[in-house]
């Protein structure tokens, strides 16, 4: 499922990262998103559920739903 569709508190492992804009993909990777890393949707923004804040390894990253669509996650039950 896409990171942008995850519910608050859900966690999983990153399955793939791909964005239409190669620069966005590069940026996501550079800030730390990588296949098979674990992510947790830790917080959601107060207005319209965006941006979201994910815990990625030991960092917290804020991103808008548009950017979160670039990341697909295998959710762990």
């Amino acid at each position: 499922m896409l990171l942008s569709d995850m519910k608050k508190g859900a966690a999983g492992r990153i399955a793939a990262i791909s964005a239409d804009d190669p620069l966005i993909e590069a940026k996501l990777r550079e800030i730390g998103f990588a296949e098979s890393d674990s992510v947790e949707l830790a917080h959601i923004g107060p207005l319209g559920g965006t941006p979201v804040c994910v815990r990625l390894n030991r960092t917290l990253i804020a991103l808008r739903l548009d950017e979160a669509k670039a990341i697909s996650v295998t959710v762990e039950p």
Partner: peptide
């Protein structure tokens, strides 16, 4: 057009 946001929140 709208711009992306990708920002680390420090501890």
């Amino acid at each position: 057009r709208s711009q992306p946001l990708i920002m680390e929140l420090p501890t």
